[in-house]
Design a protein around this nucleic acid. Structure first.
Lengths: 220, 220
DNA sequence: TTTTAATTTTAGATAAATCTAAAAAAAATT
DNA sequence: AATTTTTTTTAGATTTATCTAAAATTAAAA
């Protein structure tokens, strides 16, 4: 199997590629992993030798099919453990990321399959992120960023792209949690502040806060 | 916190000391951890520097109070995860050791306390081993080795001291599982084979098998 | 009690993952 | 197009946990 560290690199490369849709740069990886560019270069060579990434000097990296499927399995583990921690052990959605970060590296396939079954084959984790199935397939997501919608649209919060505890606590205080339905009552022309109505309550949120909220306008 | 490796050393030293009741030798540790005596010596120095063990060259080691309490916490984690794997994920009692061996190193205190609560504060793991409580106390055990009992004694199986899959599978096939009540009908004088009656069925087991079975003659 | 055997420790090497500092390549500016 | 800036890579060290081989110590046997 792959080392703890290799797994973290693959996961980070996968995430960055999903956001940028272009080869991932050394510096970006170093930033995410709190390490130095030189260390990243060393590891990239190793991952390339193992055929987990496509790596050309100075050109950034992409995951090979093998690397991608490994990364997806790690993400699957992470998200299933998050569901377990919230649903079964009653942790808050802002507390589970770091714990899952450790549990995700316990890589014994039957453990994950049984955990999945025990949890009732959940589709999404507590932050609304999709959980890949055992063959690594994601359900097709019909989701939009909250900022992309016009005034007077009704939508359901299905996820967040920022998982830090302060951010999640803030959302929770505002009552903006996964599954909540909201109406965009207005968008302030001066600074773009969003005026929302959620569960009958009027809420204003800045673009900085709205930026990380994913919504669906279907199935309401 | 302590590294994965340090934790494994502490756990092994604790176990060996429990069995031998005397300072643990370098070679014994090396044997249990599948490593070499020289590597063990290196690590012992490190653990001694951290005040987790009492170490005098050539004299073997014992755990300090701090080392002991760390070891007990790791054992607590291991046994709670084993309960989870058997009770919640329906693994067999012979399958859980290696998985728990990995999970036990996820060391975030609230995780373990909540897991304990979720499992209903179990007293023993699937092999009958006592689970220390959060302050590191073991319940006082009233247990005897099956071999120490005379003919015509009635007892309940409360644990096993050998956790290998082949051994546990064998016991399961014989119907000798934790909680079962048994009667020692006879002890063959030639080779000491035990003639048992368990749940109305007659079973013969060798001393080699009986040697790892712990029983209680109380609370029947 | 000397000799032999077993155990333990040192000395010196290796592999994994990291680092700093400097060189090389690519991208952005003038 | 030449220069500056940014990014990435190499070179060489460091740390952690391991190893082999040889030396030191202790225990057992003759």
């Amino acid at each position: 199997m792959h080392s703890f560290t290799e797994e973290n690199y693959l996961k980070v490369i996968f995430h960055l590629f999903q956001v940028q849709k272009m080869p991932v740069q050394t510096n970006a990886i170093a930033g995410k992993l709190n390490t130095r560019a030189a260390s990243v270069t060393d590891m990239l060579k190793k991952l390339a030798d193992k055929k987990l990434i496509n790596y050309i000097r100075y050109q950034g990296v992409t995951l090979t099919e093998q690397g991608k499927s490994t990364a997806i399995q790690i993400i699957r583990r992470h998200r299933l453990w998050e569901v377990f921690l919230v649903e079964k052990l009653n942790f808050g959605w802002d507390e589970v990321h770091d714990i899952a970060e450790e549990l995700e590296h316990v890589g014994y396939q039957p453990l994950i399959e049984r955990l999945d079954k025990f949890l009732g084959y959940p589709k999404r984790d507590p932050h609304g992120d999709l959980i890949p199935d055992s063959s690594g397939e994601f359900e097709i997501a019909v989701q939009t960023g909250l900022l992309e919608l016009p005034e007077n649209t009704r939508a359901i919060i299905i996820g967040v792209t920022e998982h830090s505890s302060p951010y999640l606590k803030h959302l929770e205080k505002l009552g903006l949690t996964i599954g909540e339905s909201l109406l965009i009552e207005g968008i302030t022309s001066y600074d773009g502040t969003l005026e929302l109505n959620c569960a009958g309550k009027k809420i204003s949120i800045s673009r900085k806060v709205a930026q990380h909220i994913l919504v669906s306008t279907k199935n309401q």
